[in-house]
Design a protein around this nucleic acid. Structure first.
Lengths: 197, 197
DNA sequence: GTCTATAGGCAGATAGAC
DNA sequence: GTCTATCTGCCTATAGAC
């Protein structure tokens, strides 16, 4: 018989820590915060994640894995580039609707204070996203469902950074509509950068 | 005789604190850091800025004033909307070339941890920027030097958040060229959102 | 794996002399 | 306005019992 799939302690720690980082930033959350929420003493947390740096790296790795799966899911469930781009934008929207910033977006703001392995993880996250977008853009161009000038990789970098910025400001204003407005400009029917044919 | 215009202590504190916040974030710098750089003991700093919250508010106020002056300068030195927009983008580029993030952009990432007056200051900064951009966009549309669909205020919000996001990622990558690429897409000859006539 | 106890350091902030 | 001395509290992390 398979064991009941209850989230183990390490996962529960990651869940709480992830939210705390997304809302407050890496330097503004503590083991004490996690301890208080989970009802587990601080030293017990160190048993699962010996240092805050390792906890941070684990957060990034899990976040990137989840994003990879979501990107694969979009590929599976849709078949043309414009639809895929729009679904990509909605990934960010879903995070924002939970009143959170993108984990790696907020870590980018803390970047200069992060331990080296975490910095590498953040850059890797952006690279994965841009690579996926680059492929979608190029396929769209080949299939003539997208029309744009210049390198696809350059458009991909533009899309990622614009979405991150839109999340950042929309969350500060407390208005998801500000994000939606930007996403529509980037991916909507009157899409500015990627013009549908 | 006018006094020698040497920067006073309060200004020197603000200079150092501003850079520290732009590079490390509000929660990752301390009075001890400023003290070490200026060769002034920690308690002396409290004489000028009693609390970190007040220091933070002073930073935002000064940053916004300087930005206001720069915006007025652009109005003075240029006369058509496309040129003004390009100059606006270069304001951000200048900050990034000093290896710094926009002060209010980085504070937006720390937003949920900021004291209320600082939050208001950050939002005010963005509002000032968007209002200025909105005016330039509308004037450009009237003068037929710009052509775009939808509300100017919506385009302005898009431009600000995209620039902030571009700074954030470009700084993490350590590549100013990533920012320049986005700025070109937003304001360049092939401008996507604001098409020149 | 979780606990109590505690180390060692740094945070923001205050008192009071000069 | 700047200083020394100090306070209180929180931080990450460790030791060692259960």
């Amino acid at each position: 018989m398979p064991p009941i799939p209850r989230a183990n302690t390490a996962d529960r720690i990651l869940d709480v820590a992830e939210r705390l980082v997304q809302v407050h930033g890496f330097n503004a959350f503590s083991y004490a915060d996690i301890s208080a929420e989970l009802g587990i003493r601080k030293p017990s947390l160190h048993h699962h994640f010996p240092t805050k740096a390792r906890l941070g790296s684990a957060l990034i790795a899990r976040y990137q894995d989840r994003f990879r799966e979501a990107l694969a899911g979009i590929r599976r469930d849709t078949d043309d580039a414009p639809t895929r781009l729009k679904a990509y934008g909605q990934l960010y929207g879903k995070v924002l609707r939970k009143k959170r910033m993108c984990l790696c977006g907020v870590l980018a703001a803390d970047f200069e204070t992060l331990p080296r392995p975490m910095r590498a993880g953040v850059l890797s996250f952006f690279a994965v996203n841009e690579e996926w977008l680059t492929n979608v853009l190029e396929e769209g161009r080949r299939a003539k469902t997208l029309r744009f000038e210049g390198r696809a990789a350059s458009i991909a970098a533009f899309l990622v950074s614009s979405l991150e910025g839109a999340m950042l400001l929309a969350r500060s204003y407390g208005k998801v509509s500000r994000f939606d407005s930007v996403a529509t400009k980037l991916f909507g029917d009157l899409a500015a950068v990627c013009l549908r044919t």
